[in-house]
């Protein structure tokens, strides 16, 4: 086969190459997608949640978080009281007290 033939075929094919407009095709595809993959994704999410909860329990994560929050709020209270005391600073302090109140109530129930 000559180079001319090769060239002619290439030109012929390229001349008939055209982009096809979507015209709702992708919408039809999306409508027909099965939900199986969603189920797999949900299962994966559930596994991750269980794994995280287990790790949190094993490494005593709840206490670590509570201790951190406790220290943070204590520091905030201390800095509010020691720097400049005015009425507006009482609001965060009040929130902290409410938090500890609820926390205490929960522990008393247990």
């Amino acid at each position: 086969m000559s180079n001319n033939d090769e060239q002619r075929i290439r030109q012929f094919m390229q001349a008939h190459k055209h982009e096809i407009a979507d015209n709702g095709f992708s919408r039809r595809v999306m409508r027909r997608l099965p939900t199986q993959a969603k189920v797999l994704s949900d299962v994966l999410t559930a596994i991750c949640v269980v794994l995280c909860a287990t790790l949190l329990y094993v490494f005593d994560g709840v206490n670590v978080i509570l201790d951190s929050l406790h220290s943070f709020f204590q520091y905030q209270m201390w800095s509010l009281v020691s720097n400049n005391f005015n009425l507006s600073t009482l609001l965060p302090a009040f929130a902290v007290l409410v938090y500890f109140g609820i926390h205490k109530a929960c522990t008393v129930k247990e």
């Binding site: 982009e19 096809i20 979507d22 095709f25 992708s26 595809v29 999306m30």
Partner: peptide, 9 residues
């Protein structure tokens, strides 16, 4: 959907 739109043609 983006992949479908890209490769549908």
């Amino acid at each position: 959907d983006t992949l479908v739109k890209k490769y549908q043609s």
